[in-house]
């Protein structure tokens, strides 16, 4: 790291009403503390968040959009995983 090339961090924010952290963007910072402070300044000016996570971008492994078909293919034809696949007789009521 040099003074003009700081590592990249991905920012995740959970809002007041939210249940999970959502990815909001990225920023450069020299270390984690600075990353949190910068994330607060850049991504919570309108009280969007109560909890901030910053993760060095290099720590993230992402699936490749090109391999979407191969990656998800086994799941695509298992329609029996969905509740609507099953027919429950109306006399039974709600299940």
């Amino acid at each position: 790291m040099s003074k003009n090339t700081w590592p990249l961090w991905e920012v995740f924010i959970r809002s007041k009403q939210g249940l999970s952290h959502k990815h909001v963007g990225s920023l450069h910072a020299a270390d984690a503390t600075m990353a949190i402070e910068n994330a607060r300044d850049v991504y919570t000016r309108r009280m969007e968040g109560v909890s901030i996570w910053v993760v060095p971008s290099e720590a993230i492994t992402a699936s490749s959009p090109d391999e979407k078909e191969l990656l998800y293919d086994p799941a695509n034809d298992k329609v029996y995983r969905h509740p609507t696949f099953y027919e429950i007789p109306p006399e039974v009521g709600h299940m």
């Binding site: 790291m1 040099s2 700081w6 020299a30």
Partner: peptide, 16 residues
């Protein structure tokens, strides 16, 4: 602002 970038970098490296 150069001194800020320099200081922040030096501090981060020292801490690491």
């Amino acid at each position: 602002g150069d001194w800020v970038r320099e200081a922040a970098t030096a501090y981060a490296e020292k801490k690491a």
